[in-house]
Computed example of a mutant assay.
Amino acid sequence: MSTDFQSARVALGARLRELRVEAGLDGKGAAARLGWQRSKVSRLENGKQTPSAADLASWAVAVGRPDCVSELQGRLTGLESQYRSWRRQLARGHRARQEQGIAETGGSRTIRGVEVALVPGLFQTAEYARWVFRANVEFHRIEKDTDEAVRARIRGQEVLYEPGRRFRFLIWEGALHLRICPADVHAAQLERLIGLVGLDTVELGVIPLRAEVRRTPAHGFWIYDRRLVIVETISNEMWLEDEDTISLYERAWDWLAESAVHGTDAQRLIGRVRASLDRPT
């Protein structure tokens, strides 16, 4: 879990504890008044569990401070607007998140990204995307809407051909080797990348496995203009908007870009990975 997220949750828990103490209640008394297990009160106060909006409303009433409902729920909204759980975002499938991504991309002139495990969604073929979504459906145990999600992803790629936009992406070579789909689908995806290298709106760099780097490609991230950074983890998606954090990710992107190959060198590298799929195992 992100340190920033945990710190924010601990701060919310401390505020809940403060309100309880002001009401003259101990943990057992608060649990009894709320009709909860004592352990839930402890987890919330110690930042070990994220409360729901209903939990916070009940807490405010239980401690005799209904006037604090808006404050507490505002803290939760701020926390969740930055750290969005996949469980909630994908509760009804992938399509809604795809539509949100299309909107963010459409509102940006320059997008910089780093991917260390997969081909970026903007560059995926329909079949490669289908395997990505299938895996997510199984892993997150969510509603299956693969066909709708694939259509949305491909529709979102239309922005690649709009004059005046810039898509500057770095892909770690390991992502080109990683097999999440059958060899023929993987081969077609690599061929798609080779074809994108010459597109005037796309700057595609590949960080070779043997490259010397100043910054390790620890995880993927996307930078939308200079207003937003999106980072994916297994459980959450982080939407980071403060200037210091954006500057930090910009520096990470710049350092990784120093080790990347571009143009014909990138095409050759991708081509070698593509050719390796034809070799007998």
Rank of each mutant, 00 (worst) to 15 (best):
M1N: 13
E127C: 03
V231C: 03
E104Q: 09
G271S: 04
E162P: 06
E71F: 14
H94D: 08
F133R: 01
E115G: 02
A54Q: 12
Y128M: 10
L118I: 13
R179K: 12
A62L: 08
S42H: 04
I223D: 02
E45N: 08
H140M: 08
L79W: 10
L204G: 00
W222C: 08
E22P: 13
D242T: 05
S52M: 03
V159P: 00
R134F: 03
R226Q: 11
R130A: 13
D55M: 03
T216C: 09
P120I: 02
R87Q: 15
R251T: 15
Q89W: 06
L199A: 13
R274W: 13
V231H: 09
G78H: 00
H186D: 04
G74E: 10
I246G: 08
A126L: 00
L256W: 09
G74R: 04
F5C: 11
D265V: 04
R9Q: 13
R88Q: 08
R192Y: 07
V185K: 05
P208Q: 09
S276D: 15
T50S: 13
R75M: 12
A135R: 09
W172C: 10
C68I: 00
S70H: 12
W131T: 03
V119I: 13
G35E: 07
R165H: 03
Q73F: 12
E258M: 13
L277H: 03
S42K: 03
H262Q: 07
R17S: 09
